[in-house]
Design a protein around this nucleic acid. Structure first.
Lengths: 226, 226
DNA sequence: CTTATCAATTTTGTCCGACTAATCACCGGC
DNA sequence: GCCGGTGATTAGTCGGACAAAATTGATAAG
């Protein structure tokens, strides 16, 4: 329900500023009760997609008010035709956050953090990124890395970044075979963090993100990245 | 409604993993209808605070699943006793994101971006941070800066970071007089961005965030920051 | 002709009561 | 001791009715 409406908005089918038809009309058009429809709208309002004022109806807010890093919204955004510009923005964010996070992780990781990262890495090695299990392991690796910064704000971002990583890798798979084995890059990051070498961890992570972006761009050839 | 429940959860009065009492009981305890209560819970679920499964009741999710960067959640977090550890985490995030954003802004800013930043700066100069108008101008400055990166993911973060900046400055004011004039720091960042000097912009922004963190820590003396 | 005030209508917000569906716990049979 | 069924508990859905708010239109005064 909320997914249906959310996709319609994120995909641009409804356009910011536009008014949704009245609750009663829209509810029976989608063949649900008004309560269910209202709850769906509440969810969208909580994510900053729409705003409801009495009499004025519920309007779609401008994109700048959307909580684009919300995992659900990311899922909706990638469920249709992904926007290359948005993917570039996400990688730019990763390129800012993840190297800095790797630097912090290198100085703060605990034994259990290291264990979690190594476990995820082992799973990545076993399954490839072509499988769901492999992609889950990839996400788990990045999760474990951000977790070992012991910074709750960064950990929250991990949910968004993890989702973004997942969708982009899935998209890569969809178009053509993966051109490069990503495990060694991840292993280098992991080793540097285990060794406690902040500079090396940051550099390795920067390299990883750049390569991942290159791969994604490559899988969308014909369009240049800028 | 949602604010009431949200504050109770974020403040830790309800603790992750705990079960909320049944809908009917809780709804009449808060003296609202079940529909209204349900819609509030939906909002919290959309923000990742709780999860509802039939029969099992609605449980408070672990903090790691919360969308801590949601503006509402930030507001709830700062409506009670602010957690020093959390504030440190937020400043750490700012210290990662904003300098990098300033670097990008220095190369991408347009004329209208510059105008927006200068206008915000002028407002900051006129009113001080002691007034609501001044704090609004401060937020507008950071908003305009992140806007001029022309990166939608970073712009989304601006809402979160802006809220955090707002709450922390307000908290600073609450305890004692502001020890330093923040305008020159902001002006340096602005000038560097206008000049298109990426390195200078990054450095100036890094200095600004560090000083702001120092001020905030100073206003909470007795507790050391680490 | 402009402007201000007031009323009517539209749209969201709230409430109530009943029913549905899913899941878990208990109980009996195997 | 294990397995399957049955009941109870809880969120999820539904429909209808009412309340509140705000915009829009009409109307009257300047």
């Amino acid at each position: 329900m909320a997914h249906h409406l959310g996709r319609a908005i994120v995909s641009g089918a409804i356009q910011p500023g536009e008014r949704l038809t009245g609750e009663v009309a829209n509810a029976e058009a989608l063949d649900v009760s008004r309560s269910a429809y209202r709850e769906a709208v509440q969810v969208l309002a909580a994510k900053g997609l729409v705003e409801s004022r009495t009499k004025a109806g519920t309007r779609v807010l401008p994109r700048s008010r959307w909580n684009l890093l919300d995992p659900d919204i990311l899922a909706w955004a990638f469920s249709g035709e992904p926007d290359l510009g948005f993917i570039r923005d996400l990688f730019e964010l990763r390129a800012i956050v993840e190297p800095a996070a790797a630097r912090l992780a290198a100085t703060r990781r605990t034994k259990s953090d290291i264990a979690a990262m190594r476990a995820a890495l082992a799973l990545m090695r076993r399954h490839t990124l072509a499988t769901d299990a492999g992609r889950a392991a990839d996400r788990e690796f990045h999760d474990a890395l951000l977790e070992s910064t012991h910074n709750s704000a960064l950990i929250t971002l991990s949910a968004s970044i993890g989702a973004a990583v997942n969708w982009t890798t899935q998209f890569k798979q969809r178009t053509k075979a993966l051109p490069r084995d990503p495990v060694p890059d991840h292993a280098r990051v992991c080793d540097a963090i285990v060794a406690g070498d902040a500079d090396a961890a940051e550099a390795a992570m920067r390299a990883l993100v750049d390569l991942a972006f290159d791969d994604t761009r490559y899988s969308m050839d014909g369009l240049d990245g800028r």
